[in-house]
Structures are given as C-alpha cells and as structure tokens.
C-alpha cells in the first residue's frame, strides 16, 4: 500500500515543479568589470544585456526537467573573471522544443561574450566588450555595442543596430541588416541573402559588403561622404545619390555593371558587390 502511494508521487512532484515554474533557475556571480562569458546552448533564446553593476545575473528557463545548466565561475571564489554556461541534456533523446533553454543574462557593460546557440535567437544589447556569436538557424541581433562584433549564422538573419566597434558578419542564406552604425569598419557577406544598410558613414570608415544572389540596398543621408566602388555582374547598379563619377576605369568594362564615384568629400570608403543581385543606393528616408 505504501508503495502504491509513493509511485504516483514520483509523477506528481515533477509535474508540480513544472507547473510552479521551478524549471527556472537564476545564478548571480560577483565579477570584475569586464568578465568573459562563454555560453553554449542548443535551442532557445539567448538575451544578454549590459548593466552598470559588477555582477552577472543569469536566468535560465528550461523546457524539461531532463536538462541541466552547467554554470562554472572562474575562479570559483572571489571576483569572477570568466563564466562558462552550458546546456547539458540529461536525456540525449531530447530534441527541438523539448531541449529548449532560454537564457537571460544581465552583465557588466564591459563583458566579452562568446555564444553558440545553433537553433535559437541571440540578442545582445548595450555591451562595450567584444562579442562573438554563432548560430546555425537562429537570428542574431546586436544593438548599441561598442566592442568588436563577429556574428555568423548559416541560415538566420543578422541585424546590427548602432554598433560603434568593428563589425564582421556572415551568413549563407540569411539577410544582413545594419542600422545607424558609427563604426569605422564593417565586413559583411551573404550568399543568397539581401543586405540592407541604413545610416551615415563616419569619416575614414571602411565598409565592404558582398552578396552573391541577393540585393544590396544602401540608404544614407545626403550629407554622407564616401568613395564608392559598386559592381554587379548580372545585376544592375541603381543610384539616386549625387555622385561625382570617376573616369571610367578598364574594370568598368570588365564587370557587367560597375559604378565608381565620390559622394560629397569621399571621407569614407564603401565597396558593394553582388554577382546576380541589384545594388540600390539612395537617400535615407526622413525619420517621422
């Protein structure tokens, strides 16, 4: 009889834990001002936000009790310099949504990140440290970052908003989007995705963007200043900007469509390339 009573409890307790939300866990680490955070997840949303405090608060929401979060602070006493977070499936048969873990991390502004989240979105906000992010199918969003950003997603889109540090992004089928960057250097490549740029170019900036079959839509204020090298083999280059065209170089004839020119004083350098897609250069729409 006693045995009969215990058996249902084995099911009830995890179910109650699930219902009460105990599949959420939070860890807090007192850190230096610029800790390194290394995160390996499988599925789910990862959000990292910068804050002024010298500590990291990491909250995890797990889809299954058969998921464990390994959180390792280094060193394990005193101010933490590095935190390693990893999703560990206790039941290897878990897949898809059943393997999902959402991370929400508040970290010092100076934190540097290394994030792998193959099947989920990564969102990074307001950090000064470097960020290295990789995904297979997930989208990556980075905003208000002043450190170096390297983001790769095979199938997801990548969006960089108001970045002021070095930016290097690549995708195979995903779109790339840049909004109001103030960085001096951008490198962007996608095979079949589109590239959209909205914003000014800082003086001496060096931006290189390339897609194979996608379009490039470059929108900038009329006052922006840059040297342009735009070319497409099978697509066309359309521009609505007031460019001072350079004399035709032989390469203009080599490539199907190319446009070299100077916009205002030519303070920055802009190189846009597409093999099959079109390239559009136009004034940035006025903000409402």
């Amino acid at each position: 009889m006693r045995r009969i009573a215990i058996v249902p409890l084995l099911f009830v307790v995890p179910a109650a834990a699930w219902a009460s939300g105990s599949l959420r866990r939070t860890d807090t680490f007192v850190t230096i001002a610029n800790p390194d955070i290394n995160l390996n997840n499988l599925v789910g949303v990862v959000v990292v936000r910068g804050w002024t405090e010298a500590r990291v608060r990491a909250a995890y929401t797990m889809a299954s009790p058969h998921i464990e979060i390994d959180a390792t602070p280094i060193p394990d006493s005193g101010q933490v310099q590095r935190i390693e977070l990893a999703t560990h499936l206790l039941d290897p048969a878990l897949q898809g949504a059943r393997a999902r873990v959402d991370y929400t991390i508040d970290a010092p502004f100076g934190s540097s990140l290394e994030i792998r989240n193959p099947q989920g979105v990564v969102r990074i906000e307001k950090l000064n440290g470097d960020a290295w992010v990789a995904s297979v199918g997930g989208n990556i969003f980075v905003s208000d970052s002043s450190g170096r950003v390297v983001a790769r997603s095979i199938g997801g889109q990548i969006q960089i908003i108001r970045a002021s540090g070095y930016v290097e992004v690549s995708s195979v089928t995903g779109d790339l989007r840049f909004v109001s960057p103030t960085t001096s250097r951008i490198r962007a490549r996608t095979s079949s995705g589109n590239i959209v740029y909205q914003g000014n170019l800082v003086p001496a900036a060096d931006y290189v963007m390339e897609t194979y079959s996608g379009d490039i839509d470059f929108m900038c204020p009329p006052a922006s200043s840059f040297e342009l090298k735009a070319r497409s083999v099978e697509g066309k280059v359309f521009h609505e900007l007031k460019l001072n065209r350079k004399n035709h170089h032989h390469s203009v004839f080599y490539y199907g469509n190319a446009l070299y020119g100077t916009h205002n004083d030519g303070a920055a350098t802009l190189e846009l390339t597409s093999f099959r897609g079109n390239i559009y250069l136009r004034p940035q729409p006025q903000q409402p």
Partner: peptide, 14 residues
C-alpha cells in the same frame, strides 16, 4: 536534428 538539417540543406543548395 530535422530543423538544423533543413537549414544545412538549404544553405548547401544555395
């Protein structure tokens, strides 16, 4: 995992 495989296949195709 099926969704990852689909992503890889689509990208390989591209």
């Amino acid at each position: 995992e099926p969704s990852m495989k689909a992503t890889y296949e689509k990208s390989l195709e591209s």
